[in-house]
Nucleic acid binder design. Structure first.
Lengths: 134, 134, 134, 134
DNA sequence: GTGGTCTAGACCACG
DNA sequence: GTGGTCTAGACCACA
């Protein structure tokens, strides 16, 4: 596990997990949270690969998926930029959140938790975390 | 995708996902929900493999992990049985639930959702599902 | 795990381990410790199998090995008896102890412990157990 | 029985014993003894399988258990590496040693040896081995 | 019959 | 190239 900032994005790499997924998620997160503004440039494939000391192909794959999701755009000779469409980002964020929550509820259901148990449990865990984060 | 019951367990196999994980999860779920009672026999490796039309090694791998988690015990020459320890099952269920919820909260956090947003969102989704399941 | 006495022998059966080995070891232990006297009768195969609720073949296998080691003798129509030779028992006990200790020292060596470390560690653990047993 | 070095690890394979256990123990031993440094690469699954002339699946199984014990980490596309955490290795070493010694003391107890006998016996055997190893 | 180990060889995901 | 998953089928130990 290593942690570092490149541009305005914080990267935390765990070599036991697929690298391209981690890069994808961390850039996606930075965009969703507004840590990189709309229309901003993100690091070039080769720069990011160099800084993280990983294979450019791995970074490329993450970038392709970002572009496929409409979160970034390539501009010839200039680099890769976050989309300027606030709406696009917001839509994507909601779709992903819905996917996350559906998966989570299915997991809890498979363990035999009732919806009221799940609601109580989530509330309790959120309260714990709020103590840390506020 | 096929669905079938073997013994008292419902199996739903998707051949595009790791088979041993699906078997693991579905038996785990049946134990957690009490669909298989404590101390009960689960299908033999060979029987399950034959019914699901997959390789015994794949079933074996799932069974080994169930045993590592303390949810089952093997009796040589007799078969594989759910643990008799209610406590063991309950502990495992809670640990797994905690893991699921932590992962989920981290995902939502990475999308920039505030805790109150998450709480409201979960509540809404649970209400939707309650309509279906009651 | 079940525990019970049959004759003067205490049996503790763990179904995840080879049953015949456990029976073998527990009778051997009773003989080595003198819990069954020299020349004494031990339970019949069928009695032991019935009491422990296991297959007679499994008990038989343990009894065959006891006899091969010279610790027991079968007498036609009378049953199985511990050897009358005190020397035989003592020799066997020492051989087995030597095997145990050699295996143990090899294990510790494989973990990179020096002999002085091993000696100190054993002493410490024995002191802990002495507290319990005296 | 064959003996050979692959990388910095000495392998001694006995085909009458479970191969994956022997590989597991021999790599574990090399890590515990510091014969492979922290963070070092160990042979790839395929390489080791080829050198030992056994099936890659057998090697893989040993590697999976090493990883479960936290002694190694896999980096996709790069290979398998010893953990960088000195603490993890040391903890594991002590846990395993404790398991070995407990098992040994139980064995000696089952033969009816008193603690003072055991202590004396261990000392004697260690002295014999010290003569060989120094 | 049960589970445990192993081989040979395939195909996939990842870097 | 690496590790991950799977199949087909063998042989063994145990009950």
């Amino acid at each position: 596990m290593q942690e570092q900032r490149i541009g305005s994005i914080r990267f935390q790499i765990d070599f036991s997990q697929p690298l391209y997924e981690q890069i994808l998620e961390q850039i996606r997160s930075a965009i969703a949270k507004g840590e990189i503004g709309l229309g901003q440039k993100i690091p070039s494939v080769r720069e990011l690969a160099h800084e993280l000391r990983i294979n450019p192909n791995t970074v490329m794959r993450a970038y392709q998926e970002l572009e496929r999701d409409g979160l970034t755009e390539k501009r010839r000779g200039q680099g890769t930029f976050v989309t300027s469409s606030k709406e696009r980002v917001e839509t994507f964020r909601q779709e992903l959140a819905a996917r996350y929550i559906d998966a989570f509820l299915s997991q809890m259901e498979s363990l035999g938790y009732s919806w009221s148990d799940v609601a109580a449990y989530v509330k309790k865990k959120i309260d714990e975390r709020s103590g840390e984060r506020g």
